[in-house]
Amino acid sequence: MWISKSVPVSAACLLAVLVAPAGVGAEPPGAVSPTESRLLNRSVPDVPLQLADGRTVSMSSLWQDKPLLVTFFYRNCHGICSPFLGWVRDAVRDDGGSGRDYRILALSFDEEDTAADMRSQADALGLAGDPDWLFAVAEPEALARVTGALDFWYRLDPATGQYDHGALLAAVHEGRVARALLGGSGFVERFRIMARELRGEFIPFYTVPNQTAWRCFSFDPVSGRLYMDWGLLILGVPTLVAMAVTFGLFRRGPRRG
């Protein structure tokens, strides 16, 4: 008769957990794409740059004390440049790490662009006067070395006067690429993970894409924490069942006589 009471209880517990919807949630978007990983650890050439305020600095002076996020754009872009820079700006703002953890360099790849164009771009983004946001132009030869090192491609379409080009954000740490992001889905989340890595926070794992049921832990890029997933609940089932069964069996107390 003890069986008739404890077994349904434990069976119900077990079923409830197993039937509960799998912890689908968003997979941690931490995986590095092959194209991005190709850039990892590459050396970035140290070239002179002209900043929006007219100063000429060497690129290495920008990554000397903290990592430098490098992205490319050109002023007259009618396409992705402005929205992409906007995403980066918002992501940096949300992350709150600029200045303290890194600075950002937006480098123009259009030879026509001047320091004045850089100022107007900074104004357009509302970043004028932000000391950690640098807009710069470079000599054609220097530019080619940087874009070549980072596999950044661009091609002028003579018909429209517009460039075909990619969207890239490369984190340069002491002259080497620590992480690279190509634009695309999940950019903001991946940016957060990158920012964490730049701060030196080590994310001990990332998941590879599959349709696994009931994970134990998942990684939350917003808080930077591992959070418990449904799998952990399953891990607790044996203990809960054992407790339930034990209390069930001992509930009536000893029989005297």
């Binding site: 696994t212 089932v237 044996p238 203990t239």
Partner: peptide
């Protein structure tokens, strides 16, 4: 506790055999 854990492992194995959905290797 141990034997119920075994039962859960086996149930997850059977579920995969039946539905083809992989389980979490860590779990």
């Amino acid at each position: 506790v141990a034997l119920v854990a075994a039962v859960v492992v086996l149930v997850l194995f059977y579920l995969e055999l039946l539905t083809g959905r992989p389980s979490d290797a860590l779990l």
